[in-house]
Design a protein around this nucleic acid. Structure first.
Lengths: 299, 299
DNA sequence: CCAAAACCATAGGTGCGCGCTATGGCCGCC
DNA sequence: GGCGGCCATAGCGCGCACCTATGGTTTTGG
């Protein structure tokens, strides 16, 4: 069964006239007649009664809805592809590690939504390895993380900004009101390990060097869970500057803690990107992040 | 967009491997590659990422459901046509005038249902002209009526049986208990005219000749309505023998009423009939109706 | 680390099939 | 009876889909 046969069939079913149907399809009547005959041979029965006026046979009536569906699905595919190409419609698939706050992107996404109408976002979350896999498999076009496996040489990396880590404690905590905190103050505290953060291992190394126990602590796997534990007063945490935490928690710098992470934008080298992804990438790379972060912190 | 392109696309989407997909489609890999390229050109973008392993692009993911639907509709059409041809499935479209009781057919239809499983019946009702039109337009394959317009020479006619008319009255009616009724007894009665019966006009002529008023009577358009009026005691009626009426009504022969009608089976000459219709036609024409009607009357 | 295999792209040759024109038969209409 | 609309058939040409052969690139395995 070929598509043109289906098209001809539908034209004849509409006009009930082979000659006019052929005209509508921009072919001659013999061509159309032969195509219908082939279709009839494949389906094993006549589709039309050759009378004046012509009519659908029982078999023809049965075939009509299915063949119409077949043709319209193909037409729908062409139409959707056209919308897709013209940028009318599209999806931005972006993978983030759990330690990247979505708020960082929201101003940019707001802007991009005005450029591309009917744009869909697909936010994918995972740890560092998972984000890398999503990029590899093409499930995501862009990735944002502090650090991904550098073994894969097709990974394009653009640093966005570098940030410090801060201590976060519950407002009732004994450290909450303390003006200055240094590493020694943390030694007796229950630390919540942000195991999902790709920078976690390195941070733990720094803390361990200062005699802080990081090997016997709760394991959690999302920023949301971390915040709820902090609010419940179960432990303290060290989080990056751009992690948004509720007003009820207190955040403070820690003297002597020399830990920083760089947040990167990732793409796949040599892979064609959609217009939307390219636009987002240009925006993110062209932003003065120092200024941007100060402004958003003020807000 | 051609069907084989769609088929190849779905094979590649399934296997994510051009070579194996080509093998599944029983073509060589270059043929498949070229078909995919053509499809990509028509849709205006790549459908697959040519990497190891391959993957669907965003456009490819969007196209997949529609193209799958397209292909499955075509496959469904083939499958349905196959079922249809093998007699597994089918429809018998049969047109009846309102004056033909469906009970006449039920024993035959019971039998035919055992021969053709998944058979659907479509009973179409109308007056004589409408039944003729349904046959002409091919909406019905067979027609059953007492008399159709003989002007259309393509009408095949096979007489089935001939029957008398009888008087039907409510059990409370003054004529109900009368042993013998003749035409004079009807003169003062309110007659219900079965305007939907193709034999009605001729019957009226007979009655009018005996001085019975048939020109000022209620007009009704279905046997069901007629029965309800009779049960309500609103008038009397003259109906053919094979019209089934409830036990609550009384039916009697009328002396001197010389009216009979012949019920015919109709088909369209020179038009191919389905296996089901041919079978029904053979059964109806091969029945000894005199015997059949006696038996069903006894039952 | 190199050889082998797997995979996709390209080139060039060949045959089938789709579309064309021309024509004939059939039916309905003026 | 002549005429026009409609569908079927015959014959022809060209495009297209398929094939084989081969090259380039990536992955695998020893």
């Amino acid at each position: 069964m070929e598509m043109h046969q289906v098209r001809y069939f539908l034209a004849v079913a509409r006009t009930l006239n082979f000659t006019r149907a052929a005209d509508e399809c921009n072919v001659t009547q013999p061509s159309l007649t032969r195509a219908i005959k082939q279709l009839e041979a494949e389906l094993g029965g006549d589709l039309f009664r050759r009378e004046r006026p012509a009519g659908l046979t029982e078999l023809g009536q049965r075939m009509h809805p299915l063949l119409k569906q077949c043709y319209e699905a193909a037409a729908g595919a062409r139409s959707l592809a056209s919308s897709f190409k013209s940028g009318e419609i599209g999806a931005l698939r972006i993978a983030l590690t759990h330690s990247i706050d979505l708020c960082l992107l929201i101003p940019f996404l707001d802007q991009i939504k005005r450029q591309f109408n009917r744009l869909e976002f697909r936010f994918l979350r995972g740890n560092g390895r998972e984000v890398g896999d999503m990029l590899k498999k093409g499930e995501a076009e862009l990735g944002i993380a502090a650090e991904l496996d550098p073994n894969w040489e097709r990974l394009d990396t653009w640093p966005l900004f570098t940030e410090d880590f801060q201590l976060v404690v519950n407002a009732d905590h004994r450290l909450a009101d303390q003006d200055s905190i240094d590493l020694d103050d943390l030694r007796s505290e229950q630390l919540l390990s942000r195991g999902y953060c790709e920078y976690g291992p390195r941070l733990n190394t720094v803390l361990r060097e200062h005699g802080i126990d990081v090997d016997h602590c709760h394991e959690i796997s999302s920023e949301r869970d971390l915040i709820e534990l902090l609010e419940a007063g179960i432990g303290i945490a060290v989080v990056p500057d751009t992690s948004r935490i509720p007003q009820t928690l207190k955040r403070t710098s820690v003297e002597g803690l020399d830990a920083r992470r760089t947040v990167n934008l990732y793409g796949v080298a040599g892979r064609e990107r959609t217009a939307v992804a390219s636009a987002v990438m240009r925006m993110l790379r062209g932003t003065d992040w120092r200024q941007f972060l100060e402004k958003s912190r003020a807000a």
